[in-house]
Design a protein around this nucleic acid. Sequence first.
RNA 1: GGCGCAUUGGUGUAGUUGGUUAACACGCUGCCCUCUCAAGGCAGAGAUCACGGGUUCGAGUCCCGUAUGCGCUACCA
Length: 519
Amino acid sequence: MNIRVRFAPSPTGYLHIGAARSALFNWLFARKVGGKFLLRIEDTDLQRSTDESVASIIEGLEWLGLHYDEEKVFQSDNAEKHRAAARKLVEEGKAYRDFTPKEQRADANVKQNIADRARAHAAEGIDHRSNPFRDLAKGESDRRAAAGEPFAIRLKVARDGSSRFTDIVYGEQERAYSEIEDLVLLRSDGHPLYNLSVVLDDIEMGITHVIRGQDHLTNTHKQILLYHAFGADVPQFAHLPLILAPNKAKLSKRKHGEVVSLTTYRDRGFVPDAFVNYLALLGWSPDTTRYPAQIVRDNQEVRPNLEPGTEIFSRQRLIEEFSLDRIHKSPAVFNFHENDPRHWTDDKALWMNAEYIRTMPLDELSPMVKDELRAEKLWREEYDDDESEWFVKVVDLIRQRFFTLKDFSSQGRAYFSEDFDLEEAAVRKNILKEPKLKELLPQLADRLDQVEPFTAANVEAALRVFAEESQQKAGLFINASRTMLTGQAVGPSMFDVFEIMGRERSVMRLRSQRPWNEF
RNA sequence: GGCGCAUUGGUGUAGUUGGUUAACACGCUGCCCUCUCAAGGCAGAGAUCACGGGUUCGAGUCCCGUAUGCGCUACCA
């Protein structure tokens, strides 16, 4: 069987992480089983759909590296087919025209309206199947339609019995038909509705596995009814647990803002593979029996496939390890702290990004750093040419303590530009607290100017000799130098910094009187 | 209101047919390393497995109930 899955976002805003995770799981599954991963834009809600949103979705997928197969489908292009299909159902007696005038309902309190209406109906003993047009004679219905009377088309759901299916994640699902209303397929203005469109498009696209958010779980029964009505094969369903906000509330674009937007992660310096890795662990986990920690089972050695305890999975490894039956059912909390810049998003995501930055191959990292420097106007063409070796060395040196790609242009700025800030706290702690440094640092500069060749080891030797002669601790000069050269109190081993900066810049910055002029 | 789904330390998760002190990752604390900060190494705090019953010699694991959260219930998607 040719396995075909799809990611079907509605373009009503930016791509949020829940949707991105759905896309990822579909993609992982497709790649794992050698199937096709398709993209369909569900833009049937014309009022809310925008081109910018479509662009942001495509950009997001591209950034994550989730390439879709075949041509993307716009659901709105199929509206005419969907209308025809609904009409056919009326002809076959599987659906009926509902001439009830359309109710106006305010979008804001739909939930409340539903509850109120349900209560009222229960009190009056009205079954939601008691639509007067459900059993209207076909001839009469045709006549009224021909006369131009507006109508919606509803599916005629069986009175007795129940619908059941097996969800790959949530297991056996059953729902009595009496709980399923005669759903509207076509609005009275002829507009096809979601449940009709998804089913028809999924049939046409040959979708075999529907992998999507748990919010669609109960509606699946309605959709299965439609598959039956159209005489089509019902696909397999796998519903994904929802991703919640820290207080276990629904993660919403409106309330939680940019932290849930995928583009935020790109713009704030995430490495795509790191974010993919993090996202994959939200609602899925690998089979730990393949970890060496539990390598022996039934006296049989199991393949030592993974480092003990690791959660770092390359894209390739993710594909190898992924399986739908290890997706779990309970919702995951996306743990971020709104007003804390250090923890603006989930700690684990941040840690994982840092882990990728400090361990990934330099030939993959360097281009990302290049993009970042370009964006901040710190890039020089020499870094691609004569100084390419130097550039990669700097990246390797400073990446060790960075969390995001942004850090290369902010904390790493002094390596690429003379225009960098001195941090006040660093200056006070490492320089101003020892007045003699005003005289001593230029002397140190003179001394280092003589070092030949200008290597870490030679600079270290010279500096230590100078410290001894001036009867100061080496640490005083080391820490002061760090602040003079980088503006900061923290950073890589100082002698490596000297070597990387080179004689000219090191000496010039040591002679600078900026700390005394600026503070 | 009805129906459905979920519930293991702060967060993500493991715990496959019920069986010794509930495991791992992130985060947190302390120590080591050290020119700083990270990284790394070591040690540690933190979970009466939502609650209440039941089945059993024995339950996080099975059954029932309750609570809480979430979802669906729309001529939204």
